[in-house]
């Protein structure tokens, strides 16, 4: 009743299942490790469809764009991949976590 109704419509795992049921290919990004002041805890999900729709969050907005781009590649290759994001100048990524934290994100396709 009061618990899930509003959260559910923005739930990445529900969105992923809906997209799959609609015949779209989907990837799931999951925070698997955090250091420092990471914005979202380990276990947080971002679901991404092959056409670039996404639901959920792995960083509160800092790196979602990069994760979505990688996820579309993961959908094409059907191979899981681990991404690492940190302070911008410490990584090869052009996006970073301004909070100074670091996160590792597992991106996997749905089979």
């Amino acid at each position: 009743m009061v618990h899930d109704s509003s959260a559910r419509s923005h739930d990445p795992l529900t969105a992923a299942e809906d997209w799959l049921a609609g015949g779209r290919k989907v990837a799931l990004a999951t925070v698997i490790e955090t250091w420092g002041s990471a914005p979202r805890p380990a276990g947080s999900h971002l679901a991404i469809s092959e056409d670039g729709d996404f639901e959920g969050s792995v960083s509160g907005g800092c790196v979602e764009g990069a994760v979505v781009a990688e996820a579309i590649e993961v959908i094409e290759t059907a191979e899981p991949k681990v991404l690492e994001f940190g302070v911008a100048d410490e990584t090869a990524w052009r996006v970073g976590l301004s909070c100074g934290g670091r996160i590792r994100v597992l991106v996997e396709p749905f089979g």
């Binding site: 799959l20 749905f110 089979g111």
Partner: peptide, 11 residues
Amino acid sequence: MDRTLLHGLNE
């Protein structure tokens, strides 16, 4: 993740 596993998790 297998989609049947996703379905079980959502259930």
